[in-house]
């Protein structure tokens, strides 16, 4: 059985008529890195909240179809079960700081205190995660005195320290500057390489193309494409749904129209693929 299984999922937020997600089917295997792309309002955040149990336990509304995440069925289990298995990190780093702690070290331990972990083990786990997320130099500072990128790494560390089976990331770099984004992406990449199951909504398709195993493209709450990065991001219908494609895909598409792209080649998504294609043409 897949780690995440959504069948025929339809969800309405309270007091709304049109569904935020409609007839969605999705299976994610353990260790997989699935990226979700889509325009604003396409349902990316809603899907992230569903997989992490906040729908239907925090946002009420109407959930139809079946959901199973790490063996948990939201109709039978509460949010408490979810947060022990699924970690959620979202856009705004500032709002993810608990507000009740005075140093980064304590902030990261907050989740473990709530889980009732023994203090000795707590310190071990906090030390380990601080090393993994490369924030040793921040540990004694106030979480409020950090830059956005640093705060977001603290938010990631605070979730990872709880050892979730699945990590759900809802556009974790959209509020950050390029350096901040790079730092955060680096941590996510490390986690992916360690085999963690990751679900990540993201606009930066060039990055996603390089690291995700599969990509789900959403439009108006429906899945329009699910497959490998090349299958999805190279697909010609994406721009019609308001989904950004990388400059590399854009330029290759224009080149194809001008007869300057090798016909047998699929649309490139990354710089390397793009360079290879054009090198064939130039040669």
């Amino acid at each position: 059985m897949a780690l995440i299984e959504l069948k025929n999922l339809t969800y309405h937020y309270p007091l709304t008529n049109s569904p935020a997600l409609q007839d969605l089917d999705l299976e994610v295997q353990e260790g997989e890195f699935l990226a979700i792309v889509g325009a604003n309002g396409a349902g990316k955040s809603t899907l992230c909240y569903t997989i992490s149990g906040f729908i239907p336990h925090f946002f009420k509304g109407e959930l139809a179809g079946s959901v199973s995440v790490a063996g948990i069925d939201p109709t039978k289990a509460g949010l408490g079960e979810f947060v022990q298995k699924v970690g959620l990190v979202f856009q705004n780093p500032f709002n993810q700081i608990s507000g009740s702690k005075f140093t980064v070290y304590e902030e990261i331990a907050f989740g473990l205190e709530n889980l009732g972990i023994d203090p000795a083990e707590m310190r071990e786990r906090v030390d380990e995660i601080i090393r993994l997320t490369r924030i040793e130099d921040l540990k004694d500072r106030s979480p409020y005195a950090l830059s956005g990128g640093q705060q977001q790494r603290v938010a990631l560390a605070s979730i990872l320290v709880m050892r979730p089976q699945i990590l759900v990331l809802d556009e974790p770099t959209s509020q950050l500057d390029p350096i901040g984004s790079q730092e955060v992406f680096q941590v996510i990449k490390d986690m992916a390489l360690q085999g963690m199951t990751i679900i990540m909504a993201e606009h930066k398709v060039e990055w996603v193309a390089e690291f995700a195993d599969r990509i789900l493209a959403l439009s108006a709450g429906q899945a329009i494409k699910l497959g490998t990065p090349r299958e999805v991001l190279g697909s010609p219908e994406l721009p019609e749904h308001g989904i950004g494609i990388s400059r590399y895909t854009q330029v290759a598409r224009k080149a194809l129209q001008a007869g300057l792209w090798p016909e047998k080649r699929s649309m490139p998504v990354t710089l390397d693929e793009c360079v290879q294609g054009f090198q064939e043409i130039i040669a």
């Binding site: 992490s52 906040f54 925090f58 949010l79 408490g80 947060v83 022990q84 970690g87 959620l88 979202f90 709002n95 993810q96 700081i97 608990s98 070290y105 304590e106 331990a109 907050f110 989740g111 473990l112 205190e113 709530n114 889980l115 009732g116 972990i117 023994d118 203090p119 707590m122 310190r123 906090v126 938010a155 605070s158 979730i159 709880m162």
Partner: peptide, 16 residues
């Protein structure tokens, strides 16, 4: 954010 950190989990909290 604090729900995601198990704040309301009904277990006895410990202290760092």
């Amino acid at each position: 954010a604090i729900e995601a950190r198990a704040f309301t989990l009904p277990v006895k909290k410990t202290s760092l």
